[in-house]
Design a protein around this nucleic acid. Structure first.
Lengths: 214, 214
DNA sequence: GAGTGTGAAAACATTCACAGCT
DNA sequence: AGCTGTGAATGTTTTCACACTC
């Protein structure tokens, strides 16, 4: 396991953003200043410097940050160089969208299996992978040492799928089903609830003056 | 416009969660205590009381909160009773998933139009709506007074679509494309980046001891 | 001169703990 | 007795501002 120097959660949430911003600067650019990066990421420049300082002393005073060093360090810190394997469970429209989404592979994640219990879907192909029944999950998790489970099922199946994933040794779950999953010790669960995002937006719709967070 | 008593952003983010939790309690229950709600929402009970106190004095000391009053107040505060209209642009797998997603309507949003510029998709139906070309966007926005634009296009089209939506008077955008949209004054933009969520998970994957935020 | 790294200040968010109401 | 609403305490995050390095 990696050394546990603590990076504040608020900073962790911004690291992928910085990584994305680095891809936006021209290939000819070799360095970047905190203020330029701040402008791209739409945050304060002191914020950028504070955040990056948690990764070590990466910058050069009077000069800025070397882009490729910075990118490497961000990838390292986020664990994107470990090549984590992931499976997607629930291959409806959302699951298919996720399976096709190139951003995962590009960022170092490998989608190694698609699962669904609908007989009409089993054995059909999506994004070059054959859809398997959930009974094959354990076999896959062992074979590919699956670290991440992505849940894209309807709400009513999500908790059962989560339990199964955890039973197979998966320690990280990204949940798109609109339900609250039970907490389990040592298992990280992140939920993205599409309708909640819209509700937050709705609050600010009436109040154009206020600024949302995030 | 609604009165602008300020609710802290961190609280606004939890209001939809409380609303969801209220649906979890039995229909026979008439009231709920902050500690019960806290348990369901997995937050501290003082947090619940503080959050709800921003909506006014809703509880009864010694008793708790009346569920239906609380639900009404949450919906009111979030602007879910205004019946905001939304359009979805980009009807690939993700856009289709969003179009089918029942949670939007249930929460008071009306999806009034689907748009895509792929000739193969135009005029076909998804979730009971006919897909229209982007050139029809302005007409729809006027006709239905569209408040929210949901972007589910590939990244390269997202900024153009956002510009068009804003040009049509849309003041709120929920963006699923993995790009950073330009900020525009008085336009609220929320981005959900699927790969960023996965990267945050990845950070904590190596560090089972640490707790993520959110 | 330009731009980082970081103490110190300010702002924001969470939690404790209890007075006060039912 | 039970549970809310909220001052006060604590913890976290952001921002300022400047000493320091290249």
């Amino acid at each position: 396991m990696k050394e546990n120097k603590k990076i504040p959660p608020a900073t962790v949430k911004r690291l992928p953003l910085y990584l994305q911003c680095l891809d936006l600067v021209g290939d000819d650019e070799i360095g970047i200043s905190s203020s330029k990066l701040a402008e791209l990421a739409k945050v304060n420049d002191a914020q950028v410097r504070r955040d990056l300082s948690y990764l070590g002393t990466l910058g050069t005073r009077g000069v800025g940050y070397d882009i490729s060093t910075l990118r490497n360090q961000l990838q390292l810190e986020l664990g994107l160089v470990e090549g984590w394997s992931a499976v997607i469970v629930g291959i409806g429209n959302l699951g298919s969208a996720l399976a096709h989404y190139g951003g995962f592979r590009e960022k170092g994640f490998g989608i190694v299996g698609l699962f669904d219990d609908d007989p009409k879907k089993i054995n059909s192909q999506v994004a070059g992978l054959v859809i398997k029944p959930l009974s094959d999950l354990e076999k896959y998790c062992e074979k590919f040492n699956v670290a991440i489970g992505i849940i894209a099922t309807p709400g009513e199946y999500a908790q059962g799928v989560a339990d199964q994933l955890i039973g197979c040794g998966v320690r990280s779950i990204l949940n798109f089903a609109p339900v609250l999953l039970k907490n389990v010790p040592d298992v990280q669960i992140r939920s993205v609830d599409l309708s909640q995002e819209l509700q937050i937006l709705s609050y600010y719709l009436d109040r154009p003056v206020l600024k949302a967070v995030d």
